[in-house]
Design a protein around this nucleic acid. Structure first.
Length: 960
RNA sequence: GCCGGAGUGGCGGAAUGGUAGACGCGCACGACUCAAAAUCGUGUCUCGCAAGGGGUGAGAGUUCAAGUCUCUCCUCCGGCACCA
């Protein structure tokens, strides 16, 4: 009688042995490895490290146990495989445990890690535990801080005000996930927005590279597309709309009446000239403009701008300063210039002039002088006269009937403050702005809500294409942080604008297309009311032409800078201190790791928990001096996880985060497996981080992950996402206890393709199928040994039967299929192929004695899927070394021989008959045989065969 | 709204343009058993006694041949979304 398949004993035993023998620990160099050979290459198999929540759920199993099949296969295929594991240990749940249950976050976290490690061991994965990384270890976060400082030094970390979700009742900052429908997840009170100074990484500087470098990555197109979406590049144009009052600082009627230009035709002509001049600047003008636009003076300028009936060279937006550039001046010109200067100065402008040589010889000095002049001028009396908009459809410029600015738009802010502004309904606008502030981001961006807005009375903007005056609105449907924070509204061709225009009774002007909008535009016939419907396909060419004339080509991204400050305790401290003036300074390297203090009150006090630490304040004053204060915020945990895969390559390094030479052996990651939910967060952040490190010269490559696979999601049996609160999660521990780790792992691999981001309801029904399969393998083994122990049977001398030839052919087919399917993460069909093989194997066994070699090869194929049971059988068969160190079987294509093939006979594509034949029959043979079949005769019914299609070994199709 | 992906038995899912439903679950029947479980065997898309017909979300097309390619539409899933 055969002994029982006792998974518990087998699995425990082998897990212990593997640990003792360290068979999965990997040396950095292929050459260092015990089984080294010149053909051995390094392979870095990576899975996303888990958050130590305290309990492994079935999703973790899916994430770790299945890619283990791949890692094991690669190892057997002769690669020097690094398959590390660690813990993403900082994060909110630890802190919540502290707040709710008074636990110490550190203790809580490390206890969880210890427990989860045990659970992970029971999985029997081939992880290399010697490279374990825990992000909350000071030995790790020291280097997170160090890297932060490197980035800071490079000017890619900066501070600015940003709003956070704030729960007034809990007295705490909330993460976006903690805000449910605008309410606090915990107490249900209304969440408000609060502005705080926070740290950012300038990921936007890398938008273009993050986009274009993706082309060469071996990633599924889906993931690339999602990232492209997220980065959200759009190419369009910026167009400037002048506000229609020549000098907003002047009350109407003062100064020379000649100064005003109200005549539209005149304005249009003037504008045309200004545009021509902008397009063809002199060398000197260009030098100055480059200086001015680069913010060298700290103020913004416009060039060739219309002031009254003049075009001036440069004018400041914020202050009333005009800069004129002189060429060679003739006397009569000089006179005119003087008159013009007087006129401008009478109207409140300061006019400064520079000679060509001055600018060309010493631009730095000139800019300095301008800066001095600007400083001397009073604030808030600026031109205030331009609103820049971003559009991707400049071809609809002629249809613009109003402008909308975001409530936070700088121009509006300035105008509200400006005493002399001509806006007549300031209080109404201020009220609206206040209302907007009280809305959450989610409320504001709810497209379903009816749009609101307020007309800005007293000012109008001029459509540069038509010279028409159009009203200006403030409305919160315009986002300040995209484009320029202002939009041109084309209600005839944009739904949102249409909705708004209807509500406020604004005019709607259609732009004719018919493919030649540009021609119409040039001819100055831009306005075409109630013309034939605009088809929305104004040509690329039209856009280019209109951009050239009225705007400037620009590229915008949806991607925002990475806000990394968290007003939380359990995270990596930001290694920054503030001097008595409040200026941030980096903490010198010798003070790293900048330790997280432990004398902290976790109960929300309305500020970051670190602010309650006395020890931290004392530490700062002791090191830096009196009046210096610590940074109280910690880092987003995505910073921790942006480089953990680099630390795996050199986890013990005490001198630097990692040694560049060691990285060379492993990076980039050969294959990275993870969840689809990280596509636009972790995966993008890590790419950005890695690129920065590349620019700093710390890593060798600009992309961290050569290949990426996203897995699907395991749902609860109810089709819902699994969670503790719903109680629909499967408990893997219990399951492993019952059927064994091998069965659970293999079942997870069997339920569907792993390389597709589908969703699988967790249904235990099918798991018995896998368990049966493994039991059959177990029984097969037992029988084998009984047979081989029988001295009468000598497999080597036995004659080869037809059955064995068939089996051998199937074996090699199976090797091929399994190998290919593992490579492409289609574990389900690999398992299916092995099942088919086992079915045949059993049949053959029943007929004759058993071929041991074949069974051994089969075991090797199965080893990555069911590491424990195969190891046990392998060892019982008398092998001393682990099966997991065996060489992966190779398919011998010459052994794949069909004994017989089945030829299908079709008539007009319909199957009418089939027959068996020797492999590779000639077309001639097949045709003759087919025609002779009575079924075929019946269907032919004497009709003539017009055409014959022959697919070798498969089909003959007779067309009548 | 935009961008991806997918729709195949009772279920999970297979099918380089070439026999649709592999493999597994479930179910039915049979064997073993006093009986049950386990195990093994047979069957299992559908209409039809059969011959044969129909069938991969719907409709059209290309082809000797379409689940697979093309077009239109529907549904579901995922990403982005007042992004101008």
């Amino acid at each position: 009688m055969s002994e029982k398949y006792n998974h518990k004993e087998i699995e425990k035993g082998w897990q212990k042995r593997w640990k003792e023998d360290k068979i999965y620990e990997v040396k950095d160099d292929a050459a260092d490895s015990a089984k080294a050979s010149s053909s051995r290459r390094n392979f870095y198999a990576l899975v996303e490290f888990p958050y130590p929540s305290g309990n492994l759920h079935i999703g973790h199993w899916y994430a770790f146990a299945v890619p283990d099949i791949f890692a094991r296969t690669k190892r057997m295929q002769g690669f020097n495989v690094m398959f590390p594991i660690g813990f993403d240990a900082f994060g909110l749940p630890a802190e919540n445990a502290a707040i709710k249950r008074g636990l110490d976050p550190k203790k809580w976290t490390y206890e969880n890690i210890a427990y989860m490690e045990k659970q992970l061991q029971s999985m029997g994965n081939s992880f290399d535990w010697s490279r374990k990384v825990i992000t909350s270890d000071p030995e790790y976060y020291k280097w997170t801080q160090w890297l932060f400082l490197e980035i800071f030094k490079k000017g890619l970390a900066y501070k600015k005000k940003a709003s956070v979700n704030w729960c007034p009742s809990c007295n705490t900052v909330l993460a976006n996930e903690q805000v449910i429908a605008g309410k606090c997840e915990r107490c249900g009170s209304e969440v408000i927005q609060k502005d705080l100074e926070q740290w950012f990484f300038k990921i936007t500087d890398y938008a273009e590279r993050l986009l274009s470098d993706m082309d060469d990555l071996k990633w599924p197109e889906q993931i690339k597309e999602a990232q492209r979406n997220w980065i959200g590049k759009s190419e369009g144009a910026e167009v400037e709309f002048e506000i229609n009052h020549p000098t907003p600082a002047l009350p109407q009627g003062e100064g020379d009446p000649k100064f005003y230009t109200t005549d539209k035709e005149n304005w249009r002509e003037l504008h045309g000239r200004a545009v021509e001049m902008r397009k063809a600047p002199t060398k000197t003008e260009d030098i100055l403009w480059q200086g001015l636009r680069r913010d060298a003076t700290g103020y913004r300028f416009r060039r060739q701008w219309i002031i009254g009936r003049f075009i001036v060279d440069f004018v400041c937006i914020e202050k009333m300063l005009i800069i004129e550039v002189d060429g060679d001046i003739h006397d009569h010109q000089k006179e005119r210039d003087e008159e013009r200067t007087n006129l401008l100065e009478q109207n409140g402008f300061k006019v400064i002039r520079f000679k060509n040589e001055e600018i060309e010889n010493n631009i730095v000095n000139v800019l300095k002088e301008i800066h001095e002049d600007l400083k001397a001028l009073p604030l808030g009396e600026g031109l205030g006269g331009v609103i820049s908009v971003f559009t991707t459809r400049i071809d609809t410029l002629f249809g613009v009937t109003y402008l909308v600015v975001a409530p936070e738009h700088p121009w509006l802010t300035e105008q509200i403050k400006n005493q002399k502004s001509e806006i007549t309904n300031k209080s109404e606008i201020e009220k609206y702005i206040k209302e907007t502030k009280s809305k959450t981001e989610i409320e504001r961006t709810d497209a379903k809500k009816v749009k609101t807005g307020v007309k800005i009375e007293g000012v109008t903007a001029i459509n540069p294409a038509t010279g028409e005056e159009v009203p200006v609105f403030v409305a919160d449907y315009v986002l300040n942080n995209y484009g320029t924070g202002a939009v041109m509204a084309v209600p005839a061709h944009d739904e949102r604008d249409f909705e708004f225009a209807k509500k406020y009774n604004l005019s709607i002007v259609e732009v004719i297309s018919g493919g030649n909008i540009s021609a119409k535009a040039y001819a100055g016939e831009g306005i075409l009311v109630n013309s034939e419907k605009f088809d929305g396909t104004g040509s690329e060419e039209a856009r280019e032409k209109i951009t050239e004339k009225f705007g400037e080509k620009v590229v915008k991204y949806k991607l925002r800078d990475w806000l990394l400050s968290r007003q939380r305790y359990w995270g990596c401290p930001i290694p920054v201190v503030y001097d008595p003036e409040g200026k941030p300074h980096q903490i010198p390297e010798e003070h790293l790791p900048w330790l997280l203090p432990e004398d902290v009150d976790f109960n929300p006090k309305g500020e970051s928990p670190l602010a309650t630490s006395k020890g931290l304040k004392e530490r700062v004053e002791k090191i830096f001096g009196k009046g210096w204060t610590p940074e109280y915020d910690t880092m987003d945990t995505f910073v921790d996880s942006s480089w953990y895969f680099l630390r795996y390559c050199d986890p013990q390094n005490k001198k630097e985060p990692f040694d560049k030479l060691r990285l060379k052996k492993w990076m980039p990651v050969s294959r990275y497996s993870g969840g689809a939910e990280h596509t636009t967060m972790h995966l993008l952040y890590a790419r950005f981080f890695h690129k920065v490190l590349f620019d700093l010269g710390l890593v060798n490559e600009s992309e961290p992950f050569r290949e990426r696979m996203n897995r699907g999601l395991i749902l609860g049996p109810d089709g819902q996402k699994m969670s503790k609160s719903k109680g629909n999660g499967g408990d893997p521990d219990e399951l492993v206890e019952k059927v064994g780790s091998d069965t659970v792992k293999m079942y997870l691999a069997f339920i569907g393709p792993y390389n597709e981001t589908g969703q699988y309801p967790w249904d235990l029904g099918g798991i018995v199928g896998i368990r049966r399969f493994l039991e059959r393998v177990w029984r097969l083994d037992t029988n084998t040994r009984i047979n081989t122990n029988d001295t009468n049977k000598n497999p080597a001398s036995a004659k080869t039967t037809t059955g064995e030839v068939k089996l051998k052919s199937l074996l090699h087919k199976t090797i091929k299929k399994v190998t290919e399917d593992i490579e492409s993460y289609k574990f389900n069909t690999a398992i299916s192929a092995m099942m088919i093989f086992l079915n045949e194997l059993e049949k053959e066994m029943g007929m004759s004695r058993f071929n041991l070699d074949i069974f051994e090869i089969f075991l090797k194929l199965l080893a990555p899927f069911a590491p424990h049971i195969t190891e046990e059988i392998w060892s019982k068969m008398g092998h001393k070394d682990s099966i997991h160190l065996e060489k992966w079987p190779e398919a011998d294509l010459s052994k794949i021989k069909e004994e017989k093939v089945i030829i299908v006979v079709q008539i007009n594509g319909k199957i009418r008959a089939q027959f068996e034949a020797e492999p590779n029959p000639t077309e001639d043979k097949v045709r003759k045989k087919a025609l002779s079949l009575p079924e075929v005769q019946k269907w032919l019914d004497g009709k003539e065969v017009r055409k014959i299609i022959f697919v070798p070994n498969k089909i003959i199709n007779l067309v009548i």
